[in-house]
């Protein structure tokens, strides 16, 4: 996606060369105030000392990071021991977000492909239908998901009535429930970029592949997928990143055992029991993780871009 935008816009950039600095001011200020400033604040807070009823004392401290990574203190006499509690939560978050992303891709790709191959006049209708559920607040959607997945909920009722299962399957408070919740929360972010890529795809290429004796699978793998890859990558990032920090789905659907990093951070800032520097430190670790993933993706994309 980044590659397409850059090459498409390059012809007009020269026209605005002189005015560019000024014209970009609003965008830069929004970015600065709404995005970079809070991150910077978090960074500062993560190095401060905690105040017991929430808030911070303005005194430099590494205690928050120490608490996150190490069991026996970094500054004691004995060699430090790694604290696994939070790293496990972190690892589970990555795993859950990854599973939700794969699930979204498996469902989202065929959906996007289907919509993009409908006649031009009905495509907007399909997109509209896809977005309808997302007019409802995420909290309410997640709560209703809880009802859907209950042991006596509609999903189990349906499966039992079709005779596929004889006893309700226990989904709620499992990893699967969290994955389903995340998947449902962010599915449109997968569908839309892939849709945009498939819509731009030249279907004559698929015909050419079929003409050259490739069956449907080979055509998908060797011709369609490479062509729409930027859209797929964009969709995966857009689902994975918010899933990683999500707290509603794990809180409501996962129960206490399936805690994710988002919930951990959320708790540090809620009520009086929290630990602001610790929450900030956990946020910084999460942010670093996301940045690393994005950098890897960007590297790959630019490599692919150079080959074309």
């Amino acid at each position: 996606m980044a590659g397409g935008a850059a090459s498409g816009g390059s012809a007009t950039t020269d026209t605005y060369k002189d005015a560019r600095g000024w014209l970009l001011m609003p965008a830069w200020s929004v970015l600065l105030v709404l995005s970079l400033a809070p991150v910077f604040m978090m960074l500062v807070y993560s190095f401060l000392t905690k105040e017991f009823r929430g808030g911070v004392i303005w005194e430099f401290s590494l205690a928050a990071y120490d608490q996150f990574f190490f069991d026996r203190g970094l500054f004691g006499d004995d060699p430090p021991v790694i604290e696994w509690t939070y790293l496990t939560i972190f690892w589970r978050s990555i795993w859950q977000a990854g599973a939700a992303t794969i699930l979204s891709l498996l469902i989202g790709f065929p959906t996007a492909y289907y919509i993009a191959t409908r006649p031009e006049n009905v495509r907007p209708v399909w997109l509209f239908l896809i977005t309808i559920p997302y007019w409802v607040n995420l909290l309410i959607r997640t709560v209703s998901m809880k009802f859907l997945l209950r042991d006596q909920g509609p999903l189990n009722d349906l499966l039992m009535s079709t005779g596929l299962i004889s006893e309700p399957i226990h989904i709620i408070n499992t990893n699967l429930a969290v994955q389903l919740g995340l998947f449902y929360s962010y599915l449109p972010f997968m569908v839309l970029p892939i849709y945009a890529a498939v819509e731009r795809y030249n279907f004559a290429l698929s015909e050419a592949a079929a003409d050259l004796y490739a069956n449907k699978w080979v055509t998908l793998r060797r011709v369609l997928l490479p062509a729409v890859k930027p859209g797929v990558v964009a969709g995966c990032i857009l689902v994975f990143v918010p899933s990683l920090g999500a707290f509603l789905a794990p809180d409501l659907l996962g129960g206490a055992k399936n805690f994710m990093i988002g919930s951990l951070i959320e708790e540090q800032f809620k009520g009086n029991a929290g630990n602001w520097p610790f929450g900030a430190a956990a946020s910084m670790v999460l942010l670093t993780m996301v940045l690393i993933i994005l950098l890897i993706c960007a590297r790959q994309q630019s490599k692919a871009g150079k080959e074309v």
Binding site: A204, L205, E207, A208, A210, Y213, A214, N215, V223, V308
Partner: peptide, 20 residues
């Protein structure tokens, strides 16, 4: 027969070369 089973090949008007 589906296209991929027909021993004929096409030169397309806009070539349809695989870009990647």
């Amino acid at each position: 027969l589906p296209p991929h089973q027909r021993p004929v090949n096409t030169v397309f008007q806009n070539y349809a070369l695989f870009p990647q």
